[in-house]
């Protein structure tokens, strides 16, 4: 049985006087225990909203969330906010993109780590702080005893992100959701954090949902990758399959448009026409069609279903990139 089973999740933002925006449009995916699943896409594709919806962190007003988010046997979407709080932090941990804005600037770091343990495991402040010190040590923060008393602004960006990981992993959750955990960091620090995440996930058997725009990060970390475009999963594949044979024109184009360090530099980069915000002139059909090189008549007019391929993969395309052409 999967640990997390997201079925047909949709999020619509509604504001009086404006057209409703469907940020997430029927996203389904599963996460097995101990597995690392990637959600990849560009800005506005709905990857962050998906993670917020799973955790019940979207604002109460102004949006409509439908579908199911099953964590083992429980549908998280049906839980009352009060009950959901018991799950968050204990069974599901989350790491956000910007560690400075997700840590409280006026509370010492130690207290912020300890409060998770106090809330969920009923520790006393003293015991929780002792454990917090071990946690900070485990995520590679030097001199943890002194760091406990310090405030977030006294730490560098990489250290803050480590502290956030310590908080997320304090209760040994079975699922960790990381939303762009390294985007705000420099490459050398990014490499440190990714290595740390990999080790922690391998050691503790925690399942990880990795949300990122960076295909390189996905390649090194994830078992299965979901590529999102305009709120829909357009391609899902085991990572070796995805990078060796991307079938969706969007995935294919993305992989070709990134300059790579390990191949000779070519003259020009492959580019995808237009931009994500290009309006889709048709209500049904493929959202990528206006930018697609492989556009056929069938792409427009009817909704393209997500068809299963092989090895647990899936593809939403009427005219996919043929296998032999793929890079």
């Amino acid at each position: 049985m999967p640990l997390l089973d997201v079925r047909d999740l949709s999020v619509t933002f509604e504001r009086r006087g404006t057209r409703p925006v469907r940020a997430v449009d029927g996203v389904s995916f599963t996460v097995e225990p101990g597995q690392t699943v990637g959600l990849v896409g560009e800005s506005g594709c709905g990857k962050s909203v998906t993670s917020l919806a799973i955790m019940g962190l979207l604002p109460r007003r102004g949006n409509k969330v439908t579908g199911e988010v099953r964590f083992e046997d429980t549908d998280l979407l049906t839980l009352r906010p009060k009950d959901l709080r018991d799950w968050r932090g204990r069974d599901i941990g989350m790491i956000f993109q910007d560690p400075l804005s997700s840590l409280n600037p006026v509370i010492p770091l130690g207290v912020q780590v300890a409060e998770v343990l106090e809330r969920h495991q009923g520790r006393t402040r003293q015991a929780a702080l002792r454990e917090a010190r071990e946690l900070l040590d485990a995520v590679g923060i030097p001199d943890p005893a002194r760091r406990l008393k310090e405030f977030p602004h006294q730490l560098s960006g990489g250290m803050r992100q480590r502290a956030l990981i310590a908080i997320a992993l304090a209760c040994k959750p079975r699922l960790l959701i990381a939303d762009e955990p390294t985007t705000a960091l420099d490459v050398t620090i990014q490499a440190q954090i990714l290595t740390l995440l990999k080790e922690l996930v391998d050691d503790s058997g925690t399942a990880l949902v990795m949300i990122t725009h960076d295909l390189g990060v996905v390649a090194g970390l994830c078992d299965t990758v979901n590529v999102l475009y305009a709120g829909k999963v357009v391609e899902r594949a085991y990572r070796h399959d995805l990078f060796a044979e991307p079938r969706h024109p969007y995935t294919h184009g993305l992989l070709q448009s990134v300059p790579r360090l390990d191949v000779d530099r070519g003259e020009r980069l492959h580019q995808i026409r237009g931009s994500v915000s290009d309006n889709i002139p048709w209500p049904e059909g493929c959202a990528f069609a206006p930018r697609c090189d492989r556009l056929v008549d069938d792409c427009i007019g009817e909704t393209v279903p997500l068809e299963p391929t092989f090895r647990g993969g899936a593809l939403r395309c009427t005219n996919p990139v043929p296998k032999e052409v793929a890079v």
């Binding site: 390189g216 990078f243 790579r260």
Partner: peptide
């Protein structure tokens, strides 16, 4: 440190 988009 630069991640490369190729699992192999």
């Amino acid at each position: 440190a630069v991640p490369i988009p190729d699992p192999r």
